Structure formats: structure tokens, C-alpha cells
Amino acid sequence: MSSLLFSCPDIFHSYKVWVSKNPQSLGDWENSAKWVSYFIAGRINNSHILSELVYCLSNLLVMFNDRIIKKTICQVDSNTTPDKIKLWLTVIEYSEVFCELSASKIWGSAGKWVIVTCIQVFKCIARLFLVYQHKEPIIQNPPIPVLDRRDLKSNNSNYATMGDLAQEQLNSVSFTLKRSGRVVRKVDSAPPLAIRNWKPLLKAPSFSCGNNQTIEQSLAGRQLIAETIYISKPLVHLLSMACFGTETWKPWMIGLALDLTSLQLYRSCRSKSINSLTPLQRLQLSRRTVILVLYLLRSPIYERYSKDKIDGFLKALSKIPLAGLICTPLAQYLPFWQSTYFYMWST
């Protein structure tokens, strides 16, 4: 037993080396683990909890491997307070459904709602802390996105080559002071006096590999109000369900109204060119707009209007050759997925 414990660091080091050398092929194994979660759903006892556990662990494995790749290949190792908060938020995003199902199985409906409320209170406080205290821009879902591993090594080598060329070009016309680190232009490399701009030289730009998710522009004014509304929506929705019940239209309408208000505030800022959004911020808003379609799968509109139409559509598609292999299981498990995933607090 002691020998196994002593060998654990060596095994972990070997695993990190293998992950850093095979970032592309690693994705095949991770996707296989996710497909296992779909395959075992409904085929054994407590399969929904087991399926969600496998899916949760597969997502956590992807996040863990991404951190290894960022640290070894991209040379990125962030240990700041915002990064730690985002890490915990991402872990909760991946595991909250499993925690909800487990609590419902062990403690019943009361335990389920206690766990859901605790999770959403923590998420709301943590996100507001990121936005107000650390001036974070629009919070992504999940807060730490999956790393794009396509051509990771080639991109990394290209960035390194670009950085080396820029540094070499800078060194040919300047030198750096040892104490202050200031870049000073050489006398023989100065341009003619007529076209000289007298501005100091800048250091060579640095390049990084992987997903560049950094957005320097923080939220202010209407954008800050819009993001606060979006972050507070899960708690407001849970409170409305506690007040009006889970089968009424009021929680559904309140959640939709908050989403539309948040998006409209962002659009009004963009139309008036007030703190214009960056491309990544606009991408997040586009995703939030598309997610509005999920309101068709949320109670009570699903039971009263959408369910029959979706079932009829899936039955029509199942008559097409090979399409039935996908549509028939989807129609069977859609009621369970609707009752488990399609809530306001999951977005």
C-alpha cells in the first residue's frame, strides 16, 4: 500500500506529460466518456443519477486536462482570486444537476430545494462579486470555457515565431536599460528628423496559445444593470416559484421578462454607442438570445402547448430511415430531461 502511495506522484507526472503531448487525441477519450452517459440512461437502476455522474465527471476531466495543457503548453497558470472563483463556479455548473438528483433521491423534495437554493445563492453572490469587485465583463456559461485544442501546438509555435521575430527586430534598433527596463532607440537607427514622432519605443508584443477569452472592457451604467438583472434572475425565479407555485405562469413570465429586459438594456447601449461591446461580449449576448428558445421546453408551457407538437414532430421524423434510432429514444427521455434540466436556475 505504501509503495502505491509513493508511486502516485510519478503516475500523475506521467499523465501530465501524456496530456501535454496528445491534446488532440485526448478529446476522443473525453467525448467517449460523455457518450457513455447517454448510453446508460434508462438501462439500469438509478441510471439517471449514474448517467449524470458520468457526464459530470467527464466535464470535470475536460476542465482538468485543459488546465494541464494551459500550464504546460501555453505557459498560463493563473492563481488570482477571480480565477479561483471562476474555477469553483465552473465546477458547480458541471455538478449542480447531479447534486440536485442525489439530494432528491436521499432527502426527497425538501432536500432537493434546499440544495438548489444553496447552489444558486452561492452562484449569484460569486458572480456579483466578480462583476462589481473585480470588474469582470459578461459572465460566460461556464465561466471557464473549454479550451480549443485544434492545431494547438502549431499555433503555439507560430505565436512563438512571431514573438521571436518582433523581439529580434526590436533588438536591432534599440537596447534595454538594465535597472529600469526602458527601451531606448540606438542613435544610428533613428529615422530622419522630418518624420520622427519622438514617441518612446514599445516592448515587443507577447503571444499566447489557446482560447483568448480575456476581455479588458468592464461593464458600466446600463450594461452593469443588465448583467445584474441576468445574474439575479435564478434567485428571483426561485422566489417566485416559492410564492406562486411551480405550475403557474407567473414564475415563467417573470423569468422571461427579466431575460428580455437584460437583453434590451444591452441593445440600447449598443444602438446609442454607449460603452460599445467587444466581439466576445456580443457573442455571449447572441448565445443568451438563442437560449430564449428553451422557454418552449419549460413548465408550464411545455405541458400545455409544446409537448404534443414536439412529440408529433419526433414521431414524423422517426419514420425516416435511420432517423428513428435518434428520434425514438429522444421522445422517450424528453419528459425526464425536461423535468431535470430546463429550469431558469440552470442558465
Rank of each mutant, 00 (worst) to 15 (best):
M1K: 14
L4T: 12
L5M: 10
L5P: 01
C8G: 03
D10E: 08
Y15R: 10
Y15D: 07
K21I: 02
K21C: 09
N22Y: 13
L26A: 06
G27A: 10
G27H: 12
N31M: 12
S32V: 14
S37Y: 05
Y38D: 08
R43N: 10
N46A: 12
I49N: 03
I49Y: 00
M63H: 09
F64T: 01
F64D: 00
D66V: 00
D66M: 00
K70I: 02
K70R: 14
K71H: 11
I73M: 10
I73F: 07
C74H: 08
Q75L: 10
N79P: 02
D83R: 15
K84M: 13
I92D: 05
L101P: 00
K105S: 11
A110I: 11
A110D: 11
R127Q: 14
L128R: 07
L128Y: 11
F129W: 15
L130I: 05
V131A: 03
Y132F: 13
P137K: 01
P142H: 04
P143E: 01
V146M: 10
V146L: 12
R149H: 04
S157P: 01
N158L: 12
M162A: 11
D164F: 13
D164K: 15
E168T: 13
N171G: 12
S172N: 11
V173R: 06
V183M: 01
A190T: 04
P192V: 03
W198H: 11
P200V: 03
L202E: 09
K203A: 12
A204E: 09
F207M: 05
N211S: 09
T214Y: 15
G221F: 08
G221K: 08
G221Y: 04
I225N: 06
E227D: 05
T228E: 09
S232V: 06
L238M: 07
L239W: 05
C243L: 06
T246R: 14
T248K: 02
I254P: 00
L258Q: 01
R267W: 11
C269M: 04
C269Y: 03
R270V: 14
R270F: 10
S271D: 15
K272C: 06
N275P: 15
S276L: 14
Q284V: 11
R288S: 08
T289F: 14
V290D: 06
I291E: 08
V293M: 06
L296W: 00
Y305M: 07
G312S: 04
F313C: 03
L314H: 00
K315M: 11
L317H: 02
K319N: 09
P321H: 07
C327L: 06
T328Q: 09
A331S: 05
F336Y: 12
Q338D: 04
T340I: 01
Y341R: 03
S346K: 13
